[in-house]
Design a protein around this nucleic acid. Structure first.
Lengths: 199, 199
DNA sequence: GCTCATACTGACTGGCGAGTCAGCAAGGAG
DNA sequence: CTCCTTGCTGACTCGCCAGTCAGTATGAGC
């Protein structure tokens, strides 16, 4: 086994763990699965993270961080409020084979009982709605949107996106095309624009 | 141990299993938990259901059936389309301490990997949207609603309800009051009425 | 090239949980 | 009452998996 610096190994393990959770689900992910994926001993994984619980929590944290980084990158780009909102929505919607979304659905289920994970999920949710809210506020200030309740609108848009994503990833009953179409229509109606402004 | 007829025992066990899944989550529910809840031996549970997998599947089926029965009861009642729609939405929204919704979130996560459970979840979802769709169609025919795409509207309403329910039960970020308010507003906007018609 | 901190492992343990099985007894049929 | 079906159990097995530990070896720093 080639030795690695702690930081590097941890990163490697966390990435693999996230992937493994996406594949198997939260409670079904075994330390041995992760170890095999990284091609190290199970003892090493426990050496770095102590317990399985801690490993899973760290992995979720890692995934949350990665998503928030992407979000920050989108927010940093310039453009009209409508353009930025559009990018946020695109980022959030389930991608092709979407290992991301299966992770979140799993995380929700887990968060129902595990307060630590709930905190992570809630943080992520809050940041997304916050990003949408800010964009709406900016759009209202710029005269692009009309919206009396940006906070509420942001949360409703997020909720619809969550619900449609469940239909897409869990029930496999909805394609990405129609999903984005519906979301844009709803967002547009909430913001007093037309859907075309968001495409 | 008092002996029971097969049907009775199965029913008893299934009810307990549903409750236990709601409490612990799908994969964390042990046969022994169910057995203790019914106050029988684990061997008896396996005697009736063969394997844990089969038990869990049967339990979900049971829960689905119960929910669909309630739905059928609501549909059977008379009244305007708006009144019936309102009742459907009320039934679907998370109740107080909502053991029902935690079960569904769990079931979604499980359905991501287990095709048998996916079928159950999908059936339930389909029936709900179908009920909403029918009510919309009836309302349109009666001149109560205006809606060009009842199927789509039904699915969007369901999706928003799912998403808001996640915010309520998972993130604990939304009360029932505001949830129903938002849903009614959305439904009303989709159907060309005002929210007051749905309260 | 030596040293030493530390990344890493193999081999183990202990407990837990699904599923089995041989037999027991309740209670309806006759 | 007496069978005999069948609902039911205790006590078991067997495999799995998180976590431990004593020890190995790698490679950065000198």
């Amino acid at each position: 086994m080639t030795r690695r610096a702690v930081g590097v190994r941890r990163e490697e393990i966390l990435t693999a763990t996230v992937e493994e959770i996406g594949r198997r689900g939260f409670p079904q992910t075994r330390v041995a699965d992760v170890a095999r994926a990284v091609d190290v001993s199970t003892a090493l994984v426990l050496y770095h993270f102590g317990t399985k619980q801690a490993l899973l929590a760290a992995a979720l944290d890692h995934a949350v961080g990665r998503d928030l980084d992407r979000l920050a990158a989108v927010l940093a780009r310039t453009g009209s409020a409508a353009q930025r909102l559009r990018r946020i929505l695109d980022l959030y919607a389930p991608q092709g084979a979407a290992p991301g979304w299966t992770l979140w659905v799993d995380a929700w289920a887990e968060a129902l009982r595990n307060p630590e994970l709930r905190t992570h999920c809630r943080t992520l949710d809050r940041r997304w709605t916050e990003a949408i809210r800010e964009t709406i506020v900016a759009g209202v200030a710029a005269g692009e949107f009309r919206c009396a309740d940006p906070e509420g609108a942001a949360r409703r848009i997020t909720a619809l996106l969550d619900g449609l994503s469940v239909q897409a990833t869990v029930h496999r009953r909805l394609g990405r095309r129609r999903l984005t179409e519906w979301i844009r229509e709803y967002a547009a109606s909430q913001l007093g624009t037309d859907a075309a402004a968001l495409s």
